[in-house]
């Protein structure tokens, strides 16, 4: 589940302690932490900085440089719409628009109820089945502009009427 309360200090520490206190493991620590917490909480980044004995600013710089990381909690269903070239020329932009029309979220945003978040990714390497949407590690192939609506509805969510 998303949210601040889901990631306790003990979990943060145990994730980070899996790695030696060397700078070269910072990326791996952040990846594991994001898997566990669904985003990178500030306390986690502070803990990493302490663990590898580096200034917080350096860790923060990495967290913001690498695209895979989010500093805000993601939704329960995290939708990655592939906007790689193959998906793009097969109209992935339309999918992104449809998500906005339905859920009112743009890339990088999370819906008010914490259910959905949207992100665009640059090619997940599944170009042959473009356009592709990945929701919580499940890959949906050849998603059309009407198909994305079916997927969202099938996830059992009451679509916000305001955005219909």
């Amino acid at each position: 589940m998303a949210g601040e309360a889901s990631c306790f200090q003990a979990q943060i520490e145990s994730t980070i302690q899996n790695y030696p206190g060397e700078k070269r493991y910072v990326l791996a620590m952040m990846q594991d932490l994001q898997r566990k917490c669904n985003y990178l909480p500030r306390e986690g980044l502070e803990e990493i900085a302490r663990h590898v004995e580096t200034p917080f600013a350096r860790v923060y710089a990495m967290a913001t440089f690498y695209k895979a990381f989010s500093l805000v909690p993601r939704g329960q269903f995290h939708m990655k719409v592939c906007d790689g070239t193959a998906c793009h020329i097969k109209s992935s932009a339309v999918i992104i628009d449809q998500v906005y029309n339905t859920l009112g979220i743009k890339p990088g945003e999370t819906s008010g109820d914490g259910m959905f978040s949207l992100e665009t990714v640059n090619c997940i390497g599944a170009c042959a089945i473009a356009p592709v949407v990945v929701i919580n590690d499940k890959v949906y192939s050849k998603v059309s502009s009407s198909g994305i609506l079916e997927i969202i509805n099938a996830l059992g969510v009451n679509v916000d009427e305001d955005h219909q």
């Binding site: 070269r24 590898v52 990495m62 440089f65 690498y66 895979a68 990714v121 640059n122």
Partner: peptide
Amino acid sequence: VRGGGAFVCGEETALITSIEGNVG
């Protein structure tokens, strides 16, 4: 080493910096 989703890290010197644990 797992990358962090930065296209520039495919450039070899950026990749090296990234493995070392820096901004790529």
